[in-house]
Design a protein around this nucleic acid. Sequence first.
DNA 1: CTAATACCTGTAGCGACCACAGGTTCAAGG
DNA 2: CCTTGAACCTGTGGTCGCTACAGGTATTAG
Lengths: 135, 135
Amino acid sequence: MSLSIGQLSAETGCNIETIRYYERIRLMNQARRSSGNHRIYGEPDRRRLVFIRRCRELGFPVDDIRDLLRLVDGGAPTCAEVKSVTENHLAGVRRRITDLRKMETVLKGLVRECSGETIPDCPIIDTLFKQSSIR
Amino acid sequence: MSLSIGQLSAETGCNIETIRYYERIRLMNQARRSSGNHRIYGEPDRRRLVFIRRCRELGFPVDDIRDLLRLVDGGAPTCAEVKSVTENHLAGVRRRITDLRKMETVLKGLVRECSGETIPDCPIIDTLFKQSSIR
DNA sequence: CTAATACCTGTAGCGACCACAGGTTCAAGG
DNA sequence: CCTTGAACCTGTGGTCGCTACAGGTATTAG
């Protein structure tokens, strides 16, 4: 039972151009081809693509996914490595949340100080002209 | 009292290449030039660059900054518009925080389920093979 | 006057795609 | 069997906000 790239796209929700892109950067294996050079996919390809999309949804960068796939492909004693990749990524996600929360706090403050009326000195603009201090 | 690009960079903490980039994309005005074609900056340029960097620290995209600068340059009745740009950006930041928190929750779950020992079926990998559901 | 440093322009790369253009193949209907 | 239109192919260029060269010119300190 085989799939065209369009069918694979429909089943996984992954853009066709993106599937070809994944092949180019070697996340997906080189697809089998029909006599007329169209890509043909099987169930293992579908599973692999779902895996990749799921990782991307969780924000794993492509290099991490490559590592994870290598471990998956390799088979055996990999659980600790998988966990470590995941933990590192989690730490990164937490850093980004922290950064964004700092931004949120400052922006909230700016909006609160500003009446929105047309007054000569806008407190938002005034504050933005003052040199940093976020970190 | 004028500054070379290197001095401006040192004073603002903004990379030299980035300053030239801002000029290219018209965030910064075309700089005055010395006889030997070196850029010369004045105090208004310094203030403008500080403003830009501050906005970037707060995550404003360049197009927003362009809007804000236009309002600043324009002068008068702009406070409501400034507030609206800021509020829109704040909403975007909050969306990103929400997304990242969802990721964090799932990743935390993955890490918790995995002992890190070398067992045949890694729970992280197993879960990643299952089709999404984040949204 | 020389040497070191600072500056100049222009181009290419990053990550993770998306969107063409211009050509080929496939599948269904007549 | 033939036509038509959809689906596919490759290759390239754009996105965003920088950063990093390469290869050349200007300035400045000694």
